[in-house]
Design a protein around this nucleic acid. Structure first.
Length: 288
DNA sequence: CACTTGACCTGTCCGC
DNA sequence: TGCGGACAGGTCAAGT
């Protein structure tokens, strides 16, 4: 799913919708969706009020008044959809892509005391939710290893380039997708930013110049900021907290545009596999 | 250790 | 239409 811009869009939506609400009940399908939903839920989740919704990399953190936090990773197809009283139908400007909830991909349902609900849907079941003390969240392995937030004001081009040195012998696409180098980059924004910087995804990291890293840094930040502005990318499953799609795909330059013309030079965009993932480039702008 | 590949799941699309 | 295979926004564990 969701890369940094999509998770950030969900975070913003949830912040407006659920902060201040009190949890009345929780239901989950199997341990898979919410593996540690045990006695902690009764003790620290039911009756708790939502105090904040935070994001680190592609991970969401819903903080509770009990000083526990619900940590959520949406992986490829996870969705967090809030439902109040009203559900808007087809054609309405507030139309949701999601129908009646819960549906067959609903893994977890949280009911609030005012009768509204938050649904965690996940078709492929790769995503997860965990409940843990807020103070322990930074200690989970992922949080200890994950790289800096690329959109933070104090994250510099110099630091960006520096962090790739450790991955010198791999290709730039694999390094961009490595969450321990820089946080939050996934397949869409890796391809989009490499196109922007005119770098071939299979170039080895140690062949990329300082100038190219500086350009990649600028392009990555620009692409992610634009994607947040557009509410993220909906290719298939992704929706925001209101069940609506994001529109970045309308602005994508290469991602899922194989066979179309490069918006910069007009050459035909091609697709191949790099770092084990479907990869899109302009073969004229991005030479190996 | 660094890097690559497969596994985790379900659904959809494409070619025969 | 039916069926098999490839593929899908992410991360781990296991392999080399």
């Amino acid at each position: 799913m969701p890369e940094l811009p999509e998770v950030e869009t969900v975070r913003r939506g949830l912040s407006a919708l659920i902060i201040g609400k009190t949890i009345k009940a929780e239901q989950h399908d199997t341990p898979k969706g919410f593996p540690n939903a045990t006695a902690d839920v009764a003790g620290f989740m039911i009756g708790a009020t939502i105090t904040d919704v935070r994001r680190r990399a592609k991970v969401l953190m819903v903080d509770l008044s009990t000083e526990y936090t619900i940590v959520i990773h949406l992986k490829m197809t996870g969705q967090l959809v809030f439902r109040g009283e009203q559900v808007f139908g087809a054609g309405h400007p507030n139309e949701s892509l999601i129908g009646e909830l819960p549906d067959r991909s609903t893994r977890v349902t949280i009911e609030f005391t005012d009768g509204s609900h938050l649904y965690f849907n996940d078709q492929r079941k790769f995503g997860w939710m965990r409940l843990m003390p807020t103070l322990e969240v930074p200690n989970i392995d992922f949080m200890k290893k994950v790289g800096p937030e690329p959109l933070e004001a104090d994250f510099t081009a110099t630091e960006f380039a520096q962090r790739f040195k450790r991955r010198g012998k791999t290709n730039i696409k694999a390094a961009l997708l490595d969450q321990t180098v820089v946080a939050g980059v996934g397949n869409i924004y890796a391809d989009e930013s490499l196109w922007g910087a005119k770098i071939h995804p299979k170039r080895l990291v140690n062949t990329i110049s300082e100038d190219e890293f500086a350009l990649l840094y600028t392009e990555l930040r620009a692409v992610m900021n634009l994607a947040i502005e557009k509410g993220g990318s909906t290719d298939k499953n992704y929706v925001n907290a209101e069940g609506k799609r994001g529109s970045y795909m309308d602005f994508a330059r290469v991602f899922r545009r194989e066979g179309q013309a490069c918006p910069r030079c007009g050459a035909e965009i091609i697709k191949f596999k790099a770092a084990g993932r479907g990869t899109h480039i302009c073969p004229v702008c991005q030479v190996q």
